[in-house]
Design a protein around this nucleic acid. Structure first.
Length: 386
DNA sequence: ACCTGGTCCCGGGCTCGGTTTT
DNA sequence: AAAACCGAGCCCGGGACCAGGT
């Protein structure tokens, strides 16, 4: 590429309404969470206790968009970076009482949806040599991890994010996976349900950490810092961000999704910055209530293709599951029956919604209209650009 | 030491026919 | 009665592991 082209590209990027989409992407988290100092401290009490040597089990809970992942993920990244390399610290001179050798692993349950997949990702990140994803039984994976831990005082602290979602493992199942390893493995599950509604209530040794929804002010702080990071060209007044924060009611996911949608819209319309009209469109593209975008993004590829085609299909064709399946089957290389089945499953898990239409003209059970329950503009942008 | 067929593993595509709802 | 709905199992691809034969 010529230098001239490179310069031109830079200028274009600098000119863009949203130079850095990742900064306002609801599924991407900052390396330093904003305004969550107490939560970090509470988590450190669980994960890095100064009194006991063993990693403790824990359960983090709070509503969608409260910043659970935004805190836990970077925290575990840093712990891994700062404490994870103690493997290499030699204690040859005196072999007595080596410091506990604890490693930190963050797993997104949306990316590891079965017990096998969970164990596999843990073992794969902990053990140097790559281990097979197929063809080997669960027992083999467990043995690998057991053997590894049986070495020199090795311990593991695993954070499992997004438990108890329709597509992911239950808290129960997650803890169960690591119980077999005893004190060597501590597990920190991250979910939305109150502890008393989950298996956690039967586990007295499990520490719980509650993360509340953002207050209006703290959400505003999050948005402001994200906007600055993304060098976002938005209207000069803070008024709109304030309105956005109020609209989102403490849900950072929804606020960022709307902002992202507004950015996409502004670029589509050829505006030089995000204005009130674009922001309104962005908010419209985030249905209420809204499913976390991360759930949709981590769907298997064919399912994502079906979702994308559903958005592309004409409004009229979405008026029943059957017609939607027909329309989608023109664009996707899957049988109509399969598409229909998938649509029903997506509806059951809440990613799309079936709305009863009043039409009872024809005989038989009336059809239901399909509408997306996730941030459509963000999804479309991530799917087509990514 | 190297092939080769048999068997088992996981995940996701796919289908069918029974049930529910109007 | 007809259409919408959905539970549940089959199938298959891509692999590993394990003989047993050459």
């Amino acid at each position: 590429m010529k230098i001239e082209e490179r310069i031109a590209r830079r200028q274009r990027a600098d000119d863009a309404v949203v130079p850095e989409y990742d900064a306002i992407n609801p599924v991407v988290h900052l390396s330093e969470p904003v305004g969550r100092g107490t939560a970090v401290e509470q988590l450190l009490d669980v994960v890095l206790p100064t009194t006991t040597a063993q990693p403790t089990d824990g359960y983090v809970w709070g509503p969608k968009g409260a910043g659970k992942s935004a805190v836990v993920r970077p925290l575990f990244e840093q712990l891994r970076r700062l404490l994870g390399r103690s493997e290499n610290r030699l204690y040859t001179s005196t072999r007595a009482a080596p410091a506990p050798n604890v490693r930190f692993v963050y797993v997104d349950a949306r990316r590891a949806q079965s017990a096998f997949a969970l164990l596999h990702t843990v073992v794969d990140t902990v053990i140097a040599e790559s281990i097979p994803r197929q063809g080997v039984g669960r027992a083999a994976i467990v043995k690998r991890l057991t053997d590894h831990l049986a070495g020199t005082n090795r311990q593991l602290s695993v954070a499992v994010d997004h438990v108890d979602e329709p597509e992911t493992l239950s808290t129960d199942a997650v803890f169960e996976q690591f119980d077999a390893f005893g004190d060597a493995v501590g597990c920190l599950a991250v979910g939305r349900d109150a502890p008393r509604e989950t298996v956690v209530s039967n586990r007295p040794d499990t520490e719980t950490v509650h993360i509340n929804a953002y207050t209006h002010y703290s959400l505003l702080e999050v948005l402001t810092s994200r906007v600055a990071d993304g060098r976002l060209r938005t209207v000069t007044t803070d008024e709109q961000l304030t309105a956005l924060a109020r609209w989102a009611e403490g849900d950072a996911h929804d606020a960022l999704a709307a902002l992202f949608g507004a950015g996409v819209t502004a670029e589509k319309r050829g505006c030089d910055r995000i204005g009130p009209a674009e922001l309104a469109t962005g908010m419209e593209a985030v249905p209420q209530p809204c499913v976390a975008l991360g759930r949709v993004v981590s769907l298997p590829t064919t399912r994502k293709r079906i979702v994308r085609q559903l958005l592309a299909v004409a409004e009229a064709d979405r008026s029943s599951v059957g017609t939607a399946a027909d329309a989608i089957s023109d664009a996707v290389d899957l049988s109509r029956a399969t598409i229909e089945r998938v649509l029903y499953e997506l509806a059951e898990s809440g990613i799309i919604r079936r709305v009863k239409t009043g039409e009872t003209t024809a005989t038989g059970r009336p059809p239901s209209r399909l509408e997306p329950r996730f941030p459509t503009l963000v999804f479309e942008h991530l799917e087509t650009e990514g």
